[in-house]
Simulated scan of single mutants.
Amino acid sequence: MVKKKRNEVLDIAKGIAIILVVFGHCIQFGNGLEFLERGTFFDDWLFKIIYSFHMPLFMMVSGYFYFFTLTKNSFKELIVSRINKILVPIFVWGGLFTVVTIIGKGGESNVINVIISYVKYSILSLWFLWAVFWCSLIVLFVNRFFKDNIFVYILGFIVTFVITDSLNFSVYKFMYPFFVGGYLYSKNKEKIDKKILIVKVEHLLIGLFVLYILLIFNFERSSFIYTSGYTIIGINMINQIYINLFRLFIGLFGSVFILLLINFLIKKYGYRKVYLISKLGKESLGIYIISGYLILILSRFTPDLKLNYLINIVETFAILVLSYFFTILLSQFNVTNKFLFGGR
């Protein structure tokens, strides 16, 4: 694919991923308090499908784009860029959420509690951005000091099994191989594509779909990173390694299938038919952040509902529209665009 075409595929992929993010959250938070508090959503078949690959897909695309960022900037520029584009928005949104929370409690809160709440929200919220931040620093380090040595990346993957899961590190470690995979594919795209082209795309799609189906039927509550964690220290080591590898492969098969399918359909039917999805993809960062707050508001209006996918679709549509609108609006001003979205 030429560069323009490649970007279309990735914009659509991000659009699909952000739709699934919002839809998954609506299933979790928009079907009543009992459904949420009992964790019944973990047993929902559609929720399982969404969560088996939607964040790995996002992470692969992020890694893919990071290759171009890395090749165009110096080491110092990349560090500054990571701070401005990721950490600044994280801590600004953390501050805004802290202020809103204090106001919601009537404004009564001492300084110590405010600081603790701010640090807590900033560190534990927007975990995907934190994952991109840590993964991009690792890739930057390996690229600059080890020339992207594949064995160093593999060693990093092995090390993730013994690092603590505290402070959301479980999800960061889960995202690591997908970010690195997207980055390495972007770097070696021509070589990889030549090898892939010897197999018909249709055959690849069928093979990936079959593999994914075989795995999704074995996707259990323990397969979620949120329920079983990642580290192998202090638990059943063999079982945890199996769970980690299972998540890796189902996320990989699902993500690559979606990317190949998008490329295949665009070549066959054209780009304009999914133009709106690509628009969502281009604004996926803002939608990801703002929709998270709208979801919290949604849960307060749906305490007595029961599981209903039709209602979830309506909720998803409403939140996507509002999130997109506020993202576009806030992006129009330099100050809000810089501090809320990293100046993208």
Rank of each mutant, 00 (worst) to 15 (best):
G95L: 03
T101Q: 12
I103C: 01
K279Y: 07
S223D: 05
I102N: 02
K147W: 02
V335A: 14
V274H: 01
T101Y: 09
F339P: 04
R221S: 13
K306I: 06
V100D: 00
N143I: 09
Y118L: 12
T316H: 07
F301Y: 09
S278C: 08
D148L: 12
N84Q: 14
Y51G: 13
K5G: 15
L36Q: 06
S291Q: 00
I154L: 15
F224T: 01
F217Y: 11
V21R: 07
L46V: 15
T227P: 05
I138K: 01
L259F: 06
Y288H: 06
K279F: 11
A131H: 05
D165I: 07
E315M: 13
F333C: 05
K191C: 03
E77T: 09
L57D: 02
I163M: 10
N113T: 13
K200F: 04
F333Y: 14
L33V: 05
Y293S: 11
F325I: 14
H25M: 10
G95P: 04
F178Y: 14
S222L: 12
I262C: 11
S62F: 13
L140R: 00
M55A: 12
I198D: 08
D11C: 11
L208Q: 01
F224R: 04
G24S: 13
V321K: 08
G32I: 08
I311S: 12
I238F: 14
S255G: 14
F23A: 15
F68D: 05
I150N: 04
G30P: 12
T231R: 00
Y66F: 15
S255D: 06
D44E: 09
Y51M: 04
D304P: 01
S323L: 06
S166I: 09
A318L: 15
T316L: 12
V321R: 00
T40I: 14
G270T: 13
Y288G: 07
I49Y: 01
S74N: 07
Y64W: 15
T40Y: 14
I158H: 03
G15Q: 09
V21S: 01
L140I: 14
R247L: 11
V88D: 00
F53P: 04
I233L: 13
N236I: 05
L245Q: 03
F317A: 15
G32A: 13
N31A: 07
I79H: 11
F53R: 01
F253A: 15
W127F: 13
F161I: 07
F23K: 04
E34K: 13
Y271W: 03
L184V: 08
Q240F: 02
I198S: 14
V119M: 12
G286K: 02
K189H: 10
K273F: 14
I115Q: 00
I233G: 10
T327M: 09
